[in-house]
Simulated scan of single mutants.
Amino acid sequence: MTPKRRLLILAVAVVVLAGLGTGFVLHAASRADDRNTARRGGPGVSAGPVALTGADRVAFVNDAPGPRRSHVAAVESSDPGGARTASGLTCARFYAAKGTGVCLQSGLGLVSQTNQAVIVDAALHTRHTFALAGTPSRARVSPSGRFAAWTVFVGGESYGAAFFSTRTSIVDTRTWQLMPNLEDFTTMLDGRRYHAVDDNFWGVTFAADDDTFYATLGTGGRTYLMKGSVSRRTLTSVGVQNVECPSLSPDGTRIAFKKRVLNGASLWHEYVLDLRTLRATPLAEHHSVDDQATWLDDHTLAYALPHEGDVKSTDLWSVPADGTGTPHLLIPDASSPAPLR
């Protein structure tokens, strides 16, 4: 190859790399502009009743600065960035389905920190309260509203910590029978009964049959997708590893999940798993998503991301579930989305 040709190839490579770099910068700047535009003035927040019935609305935990921060709020699905109505119920995590809500609360008592799970009705009135063994992490309600589940950190502060311990519980909201720890269920891993001292379960998501659910098992430095049965008190591995915080699609055919992209680091990419083929598709969101994504419908996912430079505050973003498209800011200053179908 002649020196002139080498020089030409080098010049082309520099131009291509410069273009890619510019594209990434512009993409990041565009998303930062979206966040900043939403932040200027902030969303309108008014106090009022929030009902978990009806359609075409999204409930969530309000993260906008002010007296209604951490309160359960709702907006119209057609205008998710618009004015919101905030209730008097405060939650660290929240989810709802069919008029049943689960609110995980964390606060300081007279002597120590108090954590509790509050099951609420469609008007957000308390039906039952359960003490929590640790710091709130994940919450879900079955499509029928019959079962509620939650995960707490008993030790450690995040899924990115070198050592952490979780406890995941399920409650029947008809009988108030509490299954306090999924570690008490019979676990089958790769066809064999399994139990280890480092077992941790988290991120329950329910199917529509009021029995089947999915969750993550963390053990031996690996994570597995598990399929559970409430009635049989069993958990069986599906055959897929590196699955965290699963979320079952409304049609029951796919699982959204976060996949760790670098061992030992708190970096996750969002994927969707086809349960029939076990093929996983990466989504268009390139930021690290440390959340249990929510299906807004059969085609769209929502999840929380921290503000640029402000890890204490989050926005809700959405992305197509088939790996196409681009992420869009859904609801600024918000977390824990729950579509009210």
Rank of each mutant, 00 (worst) to 15 (best):
N36I: 12
L305K: 04
A64M: 09
D274E: 07
I255M: 05
A293Q: 06
A96Y: 04
R233F: 00
H269C: 00
G19V: 06
W295E: 08
T175P: 10
L182S: 07
G228K: 10
K4S: 11
T186P: 00
R5K: 12
F94K: 09
F201G: 04
G239D: 07
S288M: 01
E244S: 15
L17W: 08
S231V: 11
G109R: 03
H287W: 10
A29E: 12
T90R: 15
D63F: 02
M188C: 04
Q241M: 11
K4W: 00
G23E: 07
D310F: 02
Y95K: 11
G160K: 06
V197T: 15
R93N: 11
R5E: 13
T294R: 12
D33F: 08
S137Y: 14
V118T: 14
K312P: 00
D184N: 14
L182E: 05
Y224I: 03
V141T: 12
L110M: 08
L89F: 01
V272W: 04
V311Q: 10
V240Y: 00
L189W: 01
A338H: 04
T90Q: 15
P332W: 01
L225V: 10
L182Q: 06
V15L: 15
G155K: 15
G203L: 07
G109V: 06
V261R: 14
P332M: 03
D198C: 08
Q292L: 07
G109N: 08
T151A: 09
A73H: 07
A29P: 00
L283P: 07
V311T: 12
R68Q: 14
V171M: 05
W317S: 00
P327D: 05
M226T: 06
L316V: 09
F201W: 04
A338S: 13
A284P: 10
A96V: 02
R192W: 01
A256E: 04
P306L: 05
